[in-house]
Amino acid sequence: MAQYTCLIVEDSPMMRQLIIFALGRIRNLKVVEADDGVDGLKKLAGGRFDLVITDINMPIMDGLKLVKRIRTDAVHKDVPIMIITTEGAAEDRQRALQLGANEYVTKPIQAPQVISKVKELLKIQ
């Protein structure tokens, strides 16, 4: 059975907890948490990840910068990235997707929607 590892980069512990709660319904998915973009990059350097879920508005390094950095990273340049953000404007979505994000979900999240998109990105039936 395949084991997937997902990195959640989110400054709100409450939101992280909620996302982890939702992802708990996907079998064989291990979750690693990071507080911001810089912490996320550190965690990425320390392992191999199958998916990155990130917020946009975070201190130190925001989610869009993180997406840019991941897309130039030798190891993780192809890892799927899902953005979960409060920014609901069409131009924000377009910018994130142009930078290399694969999915863009706005808050407040609905667990079934997040689960379905994560499964899609991980190609889980």
Partner: peptide, 12 residues
């Protein structure tokens, strides 16, 4: 801050 975050993140 938690109350504020709760309303922002969970309620929108």
């Amino acid at each position: 801050s938690v109350i504020e975050q709760m309303l922002m993140q969970f309620v929108g």
